[in-house]
Design a binder for these strands. Structure first.
Lengths: 132, 132
DNA sequence: ACCATAGTATCACACAATGGTACTTTGTCA
DNA sequence: TGACAAAGTACCATTGTGTGATACTATGGT
């Protein structure tokens, strides 16, 4: 379902959260779908069950999933009841976009090369767009 | 020149590095330009001089600037001698792109709204593109 | 009732991020 | 040529974060 890189500088919890968020955004995980139990996912990923539990709690705090003791964790909201992106959100996204582009450029990646990557990512999340 | 947010979850050093990388990528900082002394920039940003010094060292480690005791720090390479983006780099960029898009979508931001942000960011880094 | 299943709570440890303070190198000017 | 200012460096202390170990509690089936 998803993978984590132990040697990454990104914390394991964040990697898991990011993966699940992406899965929800792409529709791979639908409203009502059940997430694997913390122990199972932890075993699959090779991390401690606490790490997965923390990721689940973080997702719950943002309202993306609902979790209950003894009954598991499942996706609650996908597109509904989303907070309309406020100014802080937009500012953060802009900065991340700039950082992403700056890193691509400074990594020596040609524009066209990066556009291909961008298009692929965008297609996964917002399948409609053509130009990206 | 640049700003940092003390309440951000992104480390101060990383914010500074990111800001300077972006400035180089946009051409705002050119080859040979001198960066402000660590004490001055630290004062301007409201952080400790060590924090700026670490950012400078990190930039030097990637070859973007050259720094020497008693003589200051200046930009050494902008587009030249860049490591041609390898597969790991591309994979990392793809994941970050997906995460960015996923967050935008889950934040409730409409496609068109995000596209505007994206276009703005891209224009700053790679001024040529129109469609982004 | 009992037991398996699923999430939770508490503690411990390691490491990263930041700041305090003192130091070394370089250049300039009297 | 000695002193001083300017600029980066080193080392240490403190605090917070990420991860794991272990034990606990809630739920539901049989």
């Amino acid at each position: 379902m998803l993978t984590v890189r132990l040697d990454s500088d990104e914390p394991l919890v964040d990697q898991i959260v990011r993966g699940i968020r992406a899965a929800i955004a792409t529709g791979e995980l639908q409203n009502g779908d059940e997430l694997p139990p913390v122990r199972q996912l932890a075993g699959d990923l090779g991390v401690h069950l606490n790490t997965v539990a923390r990721a689940y709690r973080e997702l719950q705090a943002t309202g993306l999933v609902h979790t209950a003791r003894g009954r598991g964790t499942r996706v609650t909201a996908t597109q509904e009841a989303l907070p309309a992106g406020d100014e802080a959100t937009r500012q953060g996204l802009l900065e991340r976009a700039q950082a992403l582009l700056a890193d691509a450029k400074l990594a020596g990646l040609p524009r066209t090369e990066f556009d291909r990557i961008w298009k692929e990512a965008r297609q996964a999340i917002w399948p409609s767009g053509r130009t990206s």
